[in-house]
Design a protein around this nucleic acid. Structure first.
Lengths: 201, 201
DNA sequence: TTCAAATCCTAGCGCTGCTAGAAATGGGAG
DNA sequence: CTCCCATTTCTAGCAGCGCTAGGATTTGAA
């Protein structure tokens, strides 16, 4: 029995090393540089061993992404408990800026980590939860989930476009300030509606 | 001289066929399905011919992306001239939803189409310009460029997260309505500032 | 000491983007 | 009309990718 346990522990260690190595290489040189051969060499095992841990390269990317969500949630939490919405937004953008590849991985559509599902890994929901609590303080409970989604999407859009070179980096603070203005206090009701039934899926 | 012209015309035709074929396959089966061999077969030339037109596959993707920006700008323009901000936002989301792969291509960081540069292809700026004019009507001229960038980023974030499965599609209209509420009318001044000097690049 | 099961590796498949160098094409000069 | 040379185009192949079948090796238990 104790043998079985030791082996399982070794397996877990090895899995961690795979994830860590993948993340390390990806953050330094991009995911194209993360080849299965290189990963195998790094953990000092042969290629096929990787496939006894993960279904494929995408699964490894997903594992790295989940790590990223956990870290993001932790940093947002720290910013929220000792400060307000502005600091949370700043923490969010700092996360995306200091780990650009990790951040990109978390939202790559290749890695389909479905949200709002019962089997959604906890770290994913945690990050969202932190944003929601930060928003609750200034916006109240009305339509809070949707409000959070919109605020989150706005932050995400800012970071994505900036990383892709579509927005000048030096104007980021001003943009963040404008966004926070929009999201400070209760939303005004009504008047604007999207589309006139044009919207079809 | 007329021979030279004919050849150049044929070259341009062929280039168009490459771009169109790439876009067609990509929209139907994703960019992984767009291989150089398949493109070559489609235009009835050999592989190396592609490289006399484009530096590589990325360059072909960029060409498709530029086409996408031109189309987006045209559709936003139509929505703006005959309606208001809400309709422009709806047109934007409809574009992203009906051509998901094309939209994704336009903002993929692999395709680095730098904005806000003198040699930025015109179609890229056109789309941004349409959003700006739509915002001017309800928001005035104050800080208009930055306001537009934030609004654009918000829309982009919504579409990106929805496409990636992070946001439920059926709540999109409500989110769009909330966003439009936030962006209807003048921004309130001040009070919120991002970060306290924490922000470093 | 032997054996079966779990573990791991060697070798290789089919594919990718891309390119060097040979072959074919076609307009202009004699 | 014929020849030549520049341009265009193709054949063939490189190095690398993700992934896997099947055999070799290790390992704990009998």
């Amino acid at each position: 029995m104790t043998v079985r346990e030791r082996r399982e522990r070794e397996r877990e260690d090895r899995e961690r090393r795979i994830i860590d190595a993948a993340r390390e290489i990806a953050e330094a040189e991009g995911w194209d540089a993360v080849t299965t051969r290189r990963l195998a060499e790094r953990i000092e095992y042969s290629q096929p061993v990787l496939y006894s841990h993960f279904k494929g390269k995408d699964a490894i990317m997903a594992a790295v992404a989940i790590d990223g969500f956990a870290e993001l949630a932790a940093e947002l939490r720290a910013a929220r408990t000792e400060a307000g919405l502005a600091e949370v937004a700043t923490a969010y953008t700092r996360f995306a800026e200091t780990r650009p590849v990790l951040y990109e991985t978390m939202f790559t559509s290749a890695v389909d980590l479905t949200f709002a599902s019962t089997e959604t890994p906890a770290p994913l929901q945690a990050g969202f939860g932190e944003l929601r609590e930060a928003l609750r303080a200034t916006n109240g409970d009305e339509d809070l989930d949707a409000q959070t989604e919109v605020f989150w999407a706005s932050l995400h859009g800012l970071m994505t476009l900036m990383r892709g070179g579509r927005l000048r980096r030096e104007d980021h603070d001003r943009r963040l300030a404008l966004l926070l203005q929009r999201f400070s206090g209760q939303a005004r009701r009504g008047s604007f509606q999207p589309g006139r039934g044009k919207w079809q899926v």
